[in-house]
Structure formats: C-alpha cells, structure tokens
Design a protein around this nucleic acid. Structure first.
Length: 354
DNA sequence: CGCTTTTGACCAGCGC
DNA sequence: GCGCTGGTCAAAAGCG
C-alpha cells in the first residue's frame, strides 16, 4: 500500500520519531494495528511534517492529505460502532423534564442543551460485560469506587456473583462481578448504567510520585496488584467477543479500551493539557464534576494535531485495597487510587458513551 | 465513629 | 398459582 510507505518514510526521515512510531505500532506484538495506534501514528507523522522545512511541508501536504484519507478509510473499516455525531445526537436532548434540566446541563457547539441521563440510557446500550484477566491477583480496578451491596451464588456456577454500586450518591452505575467458570484467572464484570461523574483522582488530585504504598487490608493477603491485566469487551447482544483489545493495561485502569471513534479526543485528554485540567477543575468546583460536564469536553475538543506527543508511559502503581469476598474467588472494586500519570482515561465512562 | 462488607431475608420476573 | 432464580435491601459485624 502506497500510503503505508508514506508512513514508513516519515518514520525513517525522523529517527527519533521512528522509535516512537515503533512504540505505538503494534505495541502488543499483534499483527494488527488498532485505530488508536493509527491515530497516534498520524500525530507522530504530523510532527515530522511540522518539523520539516516549509518546502518540505509543501511537498508533504499532498501525502498528508492522502494519509488522512487513508486513516479515515481505515477507521471506517475498523470501527463500525456509533460515531461522534451519533453520540452528539444521543446527548442532544431537549428534554421536557425540568428536574433533569436543572440537574444536568451540557453544551455543544450550538450552545447549551438539556441532557437527560435517563433518556440517554434508554437510547443507548448501557450494559456491557468485560472479561478481565487478573494476572493471578484476583484484582480488577476500573478507577471508580464501588460499594458491595450483595452477593449471590448463581445456579450452575461454582463461583458467587458479587454486586457493586458506585459509591457516588449521584451515580447509579452498578456492576456485577463473578469469576469465569472457564478460566479461573478471568473475572466477568458486567457494568450497568452510566457513571455521572469522572474519576476525580485521575484528573484533579495529583498524587506524589512514586505513589506511596497504601496498606492492604489484611484479608487480602495476596501479592501486590500487578499491572497488565488482559481485558476483552463482550457485547451482551452476541455471544462472540468483539475484537476490542488485548492490550496490557494498567491495573488501575481496568476498563475497556475505547472504541476508535473516541480516539482523537482521548489522545488530547491523555496529554492533560493545561486548558483541559483547568476546565475540568472549574467545572468540578461548580457542580461536582458530573458526566454531563465530561462529555462536552470530549465532544467539543476535536483532535488537535499540535502538541500530539502522546506518551503512554502507563506506570502502574496500584495501591487500591479491594476487599475480597469470604471465598477466595473474586475481588474487584473499592478504594481505588488512580495514578495521575496514567494515560488511561475513564474508559468506563467512554465505553458507556461510545 | 464512619465506612465497608457480609449475609440472610425479601422482592420481582419468569417459566411451567 | 407455585417454585425457581437473580437482584436488592438492611441489619449486623468488621475494620481502620
């Protein structure tokens, strides 16, 4: 493919970038570049173009257009889920519910609109299942703080199912966790409902690095949480797992990788640019940082080709202290300390949205 | 003391 | 209507 050669040429022309591109190209050793990786590559190549001479830039203008076209084609090929416009459509309700109007405001490019979470939930699929590889420690973190409110033994399953609810009083997100019967080191986590907030600790509460080790609850007893769990997103509507990702993830970010449509926005957020933090902080102060504040930030902030030096360092200092059920079967949730340097955004939110 | 987990009871949905 | 099953409630206990 000619366009592929352009990418390769760009990486060769700028040696430092070549390393970076190699880092993002198939970082998990697979032979398939995810759309996220493609977008990262695109940004890196854009940098190469910007660092070139004006003449070179002019000469590279056409290849760049071709590349963008190629990326768009690839994205449209790889991703068949909801698009940004779908999301905006889903969020752009002019609800008659005045209570909802008071409680939830979002903005789009056309100005403020009223957003009714209930209507979004009814319109969008708000339940999905994750299969989470636990690396032997039986832990699964997703950046949220959960409170366990029940546990039931399930028929034809040797493992009990635990029920968790988001501790945020304004959030009705829930999840069910049970250990897979097929794979002992895999947890089946079913998320239900939208988080009406983001994980404050990730964006707003910088923590000292390295993060101090938090004491673990005695009943845990196991080894410290280890990074790089493997997760797979499973569509409830079908038995087959979607080929979402098997990328290693930070243990503090046990959440599905975002579908590609969100990638250009996520890429920006991973940088945590000053404007973004400031905006988040301001909105957090004014109304407690609800999801409806988060979403417009995602939607309003289009992909920027400037400053796209994504560094997914993903240091994993999981200091969470989830409590185990009496049986040594599963353990997720609770008391998450999000590593502020982690590149992983609140994927649970985003996966609900996208 | 406040928060979280545990666990039996209760409830609702579903199939027969 | 009845029983089964999954989901939720809430009091008690545990923990820091």
């Amino acid at each position: 493919m000619e366009e592929d050669l352009l990418l390769l040429e760009a990486s060769v022309a700028v040696p430092p970038l070549a390393e970076s591109i190699n880092k993002y190209c198939w970082p998990n050793g697979s032979d398939f570049a995810t759309t996220e990786e493609l977008m990262m590559m695109s940004d890196l190549v854009d940098e190469a173009a910007l660092s070139s001479s004006p003449v070179q830039q002019q000469e590279e203008e056409e290849p760049r257009r071709q590349r963008e076209s190629m990326l768009n084609k690839l994205i449209s090929t790889v991703y068949s889920g909801p698009t940004i416009s779908d999301i905006e459509s889903a969020l752009s309700f002019t609800g008659a519910d005045q209570a909802a109007a008071v409680d939830a405001h979002i903005y789009n490019s056309a100005g403020p609109v009223v957003f009714s979470p209930e209507k979004v939930l009814s319109k969008m699929e708000n339940k999905y299942t994750l299969k989470i590889k636990t690396c032997g420690n039986g832990l699964a973190e997703d950046g949220y703080k959960w409170r366990k409110y029940g546990q039931k033994s399930i028929k034809n399953s040797p493992n009990p199912r635990s029920y968790y609810r988001c501790t945020n009083p304004r959030c009705n997100a829930k999840k069910q966790v049970e250990r897979s019967t097929e794979e002992a080191d895999t947890l089946v986590v079913t998320y239900e409902g939208l988080h009406l907030h983001y994980t404050y600790s990730h964006f707003l509460q910088p923590q000292p690095q390295p993060q101090p080790q938090q004491p673990k609850k005695p009943k845990l007893g196991g080894p410290p949480p280890q990074p790089q769990p493997i997760i797979m997103l499973e569509d409830l509507d079908g038995p087959a797992q979607q080929d979402i990702t098997t990328c290693p993830l930070d243990a503090t970010a046990m959440a599905p990788a975002p579908p590609p449509a969100a990638l250009c926005y996520l890429d920006d957020m991973f940088q945590k640019p000053a404007f973004f933090e400031e905006e988040l902080q301001q909105q957090h102060i004014t109304n407690g940082g609800l999801l409806e504040d988060m979403v417009p930030l995602l939607v309003r902030r289009p992909c920027s080709s400037t400053g796209a030096t994504t560094t997914t360092t993903g240091s994993s200092t999981t200091s969470s202290s989830p409590q185990l059920a009496p049986s040594p079967d599963l353990s997720t949730s609770s008391s998450v300390s999000w590593n502020p340097t982690s590149p992983y955004i609140d994927m649970a939110i985003l996966s609900n949205i996208f």
